[in-house]
Structure formats: structure tokens, C-alpha cells
């Protein structure tokens, strides 16, 4: 059904559709980020596509690729009951400079999804009316879902107390020691990089 969609996209946008595949029943098109909004508008407004609903918009990080980040968009047509996954690759090898057009004008629901993707991956959406963090607090530094963001890093809003400040012995000092709790080391990328990390 929606393989025709992919054919239509290739026909209409030619070289801007970089890659297509249909795997496990999901049809995917990887497109040129420069034409992102144009392609989205076409998918929404073309009567044969009729993608009235933006189901999901999220990011994904592939640290060994350049461009490193992917913006993944899932579209659905309620009337025609077909789905399409649209992806665009953005950002350099350090996930810097990731920018793409916002699609809030096309689907109002994109507003929060784009804010979340910005919050988690640092992708900037050009033309978004209100691009600020949504899940993390404004003082937070970095983007937590990047593979290079250490999973065991803490950023407390109020600094942890030391024993000198408290004036009494504290039973436990935070952040907790490396030898405590679950090892976050199944895959590397953690801050400490000591013996608790590495192969589990």
C-alpha cells in the first residue's frame, strides 16, 4: 500500500529522497533535511498521501555516523490508513549544528515533540514558536539522550552538601560512589571510565 507512497515521493522529489526501504512492514524514506518542510507539506496536502496526523517525532543518535543525528517522523493518514516514516540526518560528528525546519505550521502536535527532540538531542528547529526545554529544567546543560552524555552524571539544582558544611558526619555523600548501585557500564560512554565500567 504505502510502497506507492515511497514511489510517489521518489518521483516528486528525485534526488532529495536519499534512501527508501520497507522493512517489517514499515516504509521509510530518508530525505534531504533542506527540503524537510516542503516534503512534509506535500505529504500532508497531496490527496493521495493525505497524512493528516503526525504520530510521532523524535530523534536518534548514531555516534559513529556523520551526520550523526536523525530526526524521525512518523506520519499516518486516518482516511487512507497508511503510515510512513520520514527521516532526515542532521548535525556533524559531535552532534553540533543540527538544524532543521520546524513543521509546527503543518501539524500543531509537532510543537511539543520538537521541543522534546531539542531538549533530548539538541536539534534546533528553525521557525519553532517556542523552542525551550520541556522535560529537563532550564538550567540543565547538555542533551541527555546523546550517546556521549554519561548516564550516571548528575546535575543537581542545589549542590550536594559536604560534611564540612553540614558540621555533622553524613552517612552518605552524594553523588554516590562508583562502587555503589548498578553499574552503568554495559556500553561505554560514562563519565568516570574506571573499573566499574567496561564489559558487564
Amino acid at each position: 500500500m504505502s510502497e506507492r507512497l515511497l514511489a510517489k515521493l521518489r518521483e516528486r522529489f528525485g534526488a532529495s529522497v536519499l534512501e527508501t526501504h520497507s522493512h517489517l512492514g514499515d516504509d521509510t524514506a530518508v530525505v534531504d533535511p533542506a527540503r524537510w518542510k516542503e516534503i512534509c507539506a506535500f505529504l500532508r496536502d497531496d490527496p493521495a498521501c493525505d497524512m493528516q496526523m503526525l504520530v510521532d517525532l523524535c530523534g536518534a543518535d548514531y555516534p559513529d555516523r556523520t551526520p550523526r543525528l536523525e530526526v524521525v517522523l512518523h506520519l499516518y493518514s486516518i482516511a487512507r490508513r497508511h503510515r510512513l516514516r520520514l527521516k532526515a540526518r542532521v548535525g556533524d560528528e559531535d552532534a553540533e549544528g543540527a538544524e532543521i525546519d520546524s513543521v509546527v505550521d503543518l501539524w500543531q502536535g509537532a510543537n511539543w515533540f520538537e521541543r522534546e527532540t531539542y531538549d533530548m538531542f539538541g536539534v534546533k528547529f528553525r521557525g519553532h514558536p517556542d523552542l525551550r526545554r520541556i522535560l529537563m529544567y532550564p538550567e540543565f546543560e547538555g542533551h541527555p539522550l546523546l550517546k556521549t552524555y554519561p548516564a550516571n552524571k548528575t546535575q543537581p539544582l542545589v549542590a550536594y552538601r559536604t560534611e564540612e558544611e553540614a558540621g555533622v558526619p553524613l552517612e552518605k555523600l552524594a553523588p554516590f560512589g562508583d562502587d555503589e548501585g548498578m553499574s552503568f557500564g554495559r556500553k561505554n560512554g560514562d563519565a568516570t571510565g574506571d573499573a566499574t565500567n567496561g564489559e558487564a
Binding site: R133, I134, M136, P144, K147, Y149, A151, F184, K187
Partner: peptide
């Protein structure tokens, strides 16, 4: 929102 953010997606990758 975000007051109950527990890093579900990050935890899953571990």
C-alpha cells in the same frame, strides 16, 4: 511538564 521525568529512554539503553 517534566516533573516526573526519569530518563526512561536513557535507562533502556543501559
Amino acid at each position: 511538564i517534566g516533573y516526573l521525568h526519569r530518563g526512561f529512554e536513557k535507562m533502556c539503553e543501559r
